[in-house]
Design a protein around this nucleic acid. Sequence first.
DNA 1: GTAAAGGTTCACGTTGACGTGAAGGTCAAG
DNA 2: CTTGACCTTCACGTCAACGTGAACCTTTAC
Lengths: 121, 121
Amino acid sequence: MRISALARRTGVSPRALRYYEEKGLLVPGRTAGGYRDYTDEHVETVRRIRILLAAGLNSDMVREILPCMVDDGQFLAPGCEDLIATFEREQRRIDTQIAELHDVRSALTGIISAGKAFAGR
Amino acid sequence: MRISALARRTGVSPRALRYYEEKGLLVPGRTAGGYRDYTDEHVETVRRIRILLAAGLNSDMVREILPCMVDDGQFLAPGCEDLIATFEREQRRIDTQIAELHDVRSALTGIISAGKAFAGR
DNA sequence: GTAAAGGTTCACGTTGACGTGAAGGTCAAG
DNA sequence: CTTGACCTTCACGTCAACGTGAACCTTTAC
C-alpha cells in the first residue's frame, strides 16, 4: 500500500505519515523505486499513534510506548520493563489532566444552567 | 500590587501576565508612571485563566468565559446567554478529550501491570 | 514513448503561549 | 541626585505537529 492509500484508510494526511516516519513512529518498507510501502498492520499503528498524540503525549513518548503495546497484553516487548517509571509518570500527568478537564467541565455546566434559567424567565 | 508581586503570588511569569493582558484576559490599572497595578481580585482571575488554559481552551475562549464566571453561580453576566451554544460545544470537546485520556490511561495500566508481572517472575 | 497521477526529498511557513534580550523610563533609598 | 531594583514597550526566538510549495523521479495507461 502506498502513502495516499494509507492516508485514505486512516484519515491522516500523507505529510503527517512522513512526519511520523521522521520521528521513528512508523517505519514503512520501500519499493525498488523508493516509494514507501505500507502493510495492513501500519493502519493499526497509525490509529494508535493518533490516540496517543490526542492524549497529549509527544512523539518521543509515543515512540517509546508503541512497541510496548501488544494485542493481548499478556507479554511485554523487551526493553519495556525499564520504561515503567516513565509510563507511571505519564499516567499521573493524565490523571491531573483529567481532573483539570472535569473542573472546567463542571464550571461550564454551572454557567450553562444559569444561562438557561436566565433565558427561561 | 505590581507585576512581579502578582507573579510571585500566582506562580505565573511576568511575561505571561503581560501576554494575558495583550489578549484581553487580565486588565490591570496603571499608576501615574505607567506601571501595571493589580488588585487581589486579579490573583483569582489569574488562577481561573490558568485552569481554563490547562484544560485546552485557547485565549479567545478564556476571554469569553471569564466574565461569565461568577462566584455563586446564581446569576449570569450580561451577554453570556448568547455564548451558551459555544460553551456546550466546548463541553463536548472536553468530554471527547476526557474519553481519549481514559483510553490511553487504561492502555498504560495494561502495559504497566504486564511489566510488573514480568519483573516479578 | 509520453502524459497523467502520484511519489520523493528539501525547506520554509503556521499557530499558541509564552521566553528572552534590548533600550530605556520610574521609584525608593541613601 | 544618583544608584539599583523594578518597570515599560518593542521585537525576535522557541517548540511541536504538521501545511505548503518547489523541483524532480516513478509508475501505469495508452
